[in-house]
């Protein structure tokens, strides 16, 4: 069965900017897909439409046979807990311990106990194991904001893994990191996804990283899919096309980056991102 199926996905923000103009693709179990494209192309909106952090305007998102867009509150939580998410800004709860941050990955499986922070013994053991796995076994009782950027992102990965997800959505996971830390983070993300058989959809800015890790690459330009193929198929001409389509278009292309909400320009804190 196809893990994730996206059909004709469209998103127009309240201010009228069209972020996604009808996107189709499928994700099979175990794939590691890199999504590339210039800033403002709609990569971040695309990812957030998949787990309904942003409500799409129209289209279909079918995850493991379940319709995400029309899912009720309870069903949506079940869907979300099986899709881990990793953020450009790490988005750890800074004032609590590293361990607690990983345990947050279990919240989708819990009820009021989660609200009180009463995690089960097995969850704590599992979280500790995950932290050791990402190489932070020494840091589990530190406050999250005492870690370096690279370490924080590894906590973010551990949090996503704690969800026991079938799919991980990674939104520019290395855009805020230096090259060395980027390498470590991408490496762990790739390894863990492979080892645990998790599919990954990863927004990337760096084409070289995409080519190095991805099993498949999707190119997005101005909210539409312009490329979908293997890393080998992504020729230099193709890259040129994805990033510089606007060359002929002149001023038109310059405006592509404006308005459209991309995570590299700060989170899309529209009404949609507010608690629901």
């Amino acid at each position: 069965m196809t893990l994730l199926q996206v059909e004709n996905l469209k998103k127009v923000y309240a201010d009228g900017t069209a972020a996604l103009g009808g996107i189709d693709f499928k994700v099979e179990a175990g794939e590691f897909i890199a999504v590339i494209g210039p800033s403002g192309a709609g990569k971040s909106t695309l990812l957030r439409c998949l787990n309904q952090m942003v409500g799409p305007t129209s289209g279909k998102v079918i995850f493991q046979g379940a319709d995400t867009i029309n899912a009720g509150n309870r069903k949506l939580r079940q869907i979300r807990r099986e899709m881990g998410m990793i953020f450009q800004g790490f988005n750890l709860v800074e004032r609590v311990s590293v361990l607690t941050n990983v345990l947050h990955g279990r919240l989708g499986y819990m009820s009021w106990r989660g609200a009180l922070g009463l995690y089960s013994k097995s969850d704590i053991q599992e979280a500790t194991r995950l932290l050791e796995r990402v190489g932070l076994g020494e840091q589990i009782h530190k406050r999250a904001d005492e870690l370096s950027g690279g370490q924080q992102q590894r906590v973010g990965i551990a949090r996503a893994l704690a969800q026991k997800p079938k799919l991980i959505l990674a939104d520019e996971p290395i855009a805020s990191l230096d090259p060395a830390a980027s390498e470590v983070v991408m490496n762990s993300l790739y390894t863990f996804c492979k080892e645990d058989g998790i599919a990954c959809l990863c927004n990337l800015h760096q084409v070289d990283m995409a080519k190095k890790y991805a099993t498949r690459i999707i190119g997005i330009y101005k909210g539409t899919k312009v490329f979908d193929g293997t890393p080998e198929q992504l020729t230099d001409e193709m890259i040129e096309l994805i990033y510089n389509q606007n060359k002929g278009g002149g001023a038109d292309g310059l405006s592509a980056g404006e308005g459209v909400n991309d995570s590299s320009r700060g989170l899309p804190v529209q009404k949609e991102t507010v608690l629901a």
Binding site: R80, N91, H104, R106, A115, R159, Q163, L267
Partner: peptide, 10 residues
């Protein structure tokens, strides 16, 4: 908040 929402937290 977004991060916790994405884990399926209520």
């Amino acid at each position: 908040i977004e991060a916790l929402r994405s884990t399926g937290a209520s």
